[in-house]
C-alpha cells in the first residue's frame, strides 16, 4: 500500500470507476504535492484501461436453455434418487427396530438364564451334597474326639486274665 493515504483512497476509487471532477482535482493537488507518484498514477490508469478493455468471454447463445435443461435433468435424477433413497430408507427404518428387539431378547435371555429354576438333576445333585454334609457328626459330637481317641489307645485286652476268668 502507498504511504499516502489520500492518494491510496483515490487510487482505490479509480480501480472501480472514473473519478469525479472533485476527486480529480484532489488527485491533481496530491500529485502536485508528491510528484514522485505521477509515474505510478499513469501506470495505474493504463492498467485500469487495459483491464477494462478485456473482452467478454463468449457465452453460447443457448446457454440459458442448456442450464434449464440441466436443471430439468437433474431434477428428474433427483426424483429418482429420492425414490431410491426412500426405498433404501425403508430398510434402515425397520432394521434398527429389529436390531433393538434383538438386543432386548438377548438381554432377556441372559436375565432369564441367571434367574431361571435349575433343572431337577442339578437340584438333586445339590441336595445330595447337602445330605452328605448333614450326615457328618456335628462339631459338638466331636469335641471329646481326642479323649475318646486316647481311650482307644489304652493297652490291649489282657488275654491271660481273660482266660483265667473264663
Amino acid at each position: 500500500m502507498h504511504q499516502h493515504p489520500h492518494y491510496q483512497r483515490l487510487l482505490e476509487l479509480s480501480w472501480r470507476r472514473k473519478l469525479t471532477s472533485s476527486e480529480e482535482a484532489a488527485l491533481r493537488a496530491c500529485l502536485a504535492a508528491h510528484p514522485e507518484l505521477q509515474a505510478d498514477w499513469e501506470l495505474e490508469i493504463a492498467l485500469s484501461e487495459t483491464l477494462a478493455r478485456l473482452s467478454d468471454a463468449p457465452v453460447p447463445s443457448n446457454f440459458t436453455a442448456l442450464v434449464l435443461q440441466t436443471v430439468e435433468r437433474d431434477g428428474a435424477q433427483g426424483r429418482t434418487r429420492t425414490w431410491r433413497w426412500r426405498f433404501l430408507q425403508g430398510k434402515p427404518a425397520w432394521l434398527p427396530r429389529v436390531a433393538f428387539a434383538g438386543v432386548l431378547v438377548a438381554a432377556g435371555l441372559l436375565s432369564y438364564n441367571a434367574i431361571r429354576p435349575r433343572p431337577v438333576e442339578q437340584v438333586a445333585g445339590g441336595l445330595r451334597v447337602v445330605a452328605d454334609v448333614s450326615s457328618l457328626p456335628s462339631p459338638e459330637a466331636l469335641k471329646d474326639f481326642d479323649t475318646i481317641r486316647a481311650l482307644n489307645a489304652s493297652p490291649g485286652v489282657d488275654q491271660e486274665l481273660l482266660a483265667l476268668l473264663q
Binding site: 467478454d56 442450464v67 434449464l68
Partner: peptide, 14 residues
C-alpha cells in the same frame, strides 16, 4: 431462474 441466468451468465462466464 431463467431471468437470473440471463442476467448473470456473462459476468459468471467472464
Amino acid at each position: 431462474f431463467a431471468e437470473l441466468v440471463n442476467k448473470y451468465k456473462q459476468p459468471v462466464m467472464n
